[in-house]
């Protein structure tokens, strides 16, 4: 597999704030990668730099082996769907038509069927669309362009559950027929969890997790039961988060639990629950913020 997108030591500084701090990632060709993190973690900044809309303070970006900055040949192989896209004074069909001129692999039939599916009135002025409809329009462009590298930044802000399901279905269907590399950032992690093949998690501009999704699932477990038993069980483990209610306690451990551990837990009358991606992100972010007693920045690498 070759990396379609790779960054090395990518850093972006805004006055006193580091939006991206030494980000080095490789995104493999033909995969769906989830870019996860809190608001302000640096997801959008990363995507904007990759698509040449923003400039890096330090470090390099390579897309298809070349720098995307001011490079038309590279830029037209990428599409970027961003939640805060500013449109000119266009109608829906104008935006779709304009997009069709710029993307060499544009599929007009797909665009038209997506417009129908999302119920987008193609004569309506874009500035009169609701938030969700504007997101849908960006999604139509993002999918129909069939760009080799598709970047989706919070693609379904404001979309209702039906439209989101439609988006997942159409994305997967088209991805299966026309494989491409997709990088998607989102807050609705559990909704996309099944689509993701790879996870990159960022926090305060730093990459805190970069691993295949299958490795990440089951990487952390919540242990719950009587407080003393739980404490005994997690004593030599890495605890991400713990919560105590009276004599009971729930602790999230970042170690992979093997068969013996599981048997031990059962013997101690403890309940084990694997963390979902979303819970893992929450636990990791809280951990990084030093928000719990066991928090330790030096240990963050352990789960990354």
């Amino acid at each position: 597999m070759t990396a379609v997108l790779s960054t090395t030591g990518l850093t972006r500084r805004y006055q006193d704030q580091l939006a991206l701090d030494d980000v080095s990632i490789d995104i493999e060709e033909g995969s769906i990668t989830g870019l996860l993190g809190r608001n302000g973690a640096g997801k959008s900044t990363l995507m904007r730099i990759v698509t040449g809309q923003e400039f890096a303070s330090a470090g390099t970006v390579r897309v298809f082996g070349e720098s995307p900055v001011e490079h038309d040949a590279v830029l037209r192989r990428m599409v970027f769907v961003r939640e805060d896209q500013v449109f000119p004074d266009f109608r829906v069909r104008h935006a779709v038509k304009a997009a069709s001129w710029f993307y060499p692999r544009w599929d007009e039939e797909l665009a038209q069927s997506l417009l129908r599916d999302f119920d987008l009135p193609d004569k309506r002025a874009i500035k009169k669309l609701s938030r969700g409809m504007r997101s849908a329009l960006s999604i139509v462009i993002g999918l129909a362009s069939r760009a080799e590298l598709t970047l989706l930044d919070e693609p379904y802000a404001g979309l209702d559950a039906v439209a989101r399901q439609l988006f997942y279905d159409r994305l997967l269907a088209d991805y299966a027929e026309h494989p491409r590399t997709i990088l998607v950032s989102t807050h609705l992690i559990d909704e996309v969890a099944d689509l993701l093949e790879h996870i990159v998690m960022v926090d305060h501009g730093r990459v805190v997790l970069d691993a295949p999704a299958d490795d990440v699932r089951g990487r952390a477990t919540t242990v719950s039961g009587p407080a003393r038993q739980v404490q005994a069980f997690v004593r030599h483990r890495r605890v991400l988060h713990e919560r105590r209610i009276g004599a009971r306690m729930a602790a999230t451990v970042a170690d992979r639990l093997d068969r013996d551990d599981q048997a031990q837990a059962t013997a101690m009358n403890l309940k084990l629950e694997p963390l979902s991606l979303q819970q893992l992100m929450v636990a990791t972010s809280l951990d990084a913020a030093g928000d719990h007693p066991g928090g330790n920045d030096a240990q963050k690498e352990d789960i990354a």
Binding site: Q53, E70, H71, R82, V86, F87, A99, A147
Partner: peptide
């Protein structure tokens, strides 16, 4: 902004 989003360089 939309122009740059459509994969056109500033130049």
């Amino acid at each position: 902004p939309f122009g740059l989003t459509l994969g056109v360089s500033r130049r």
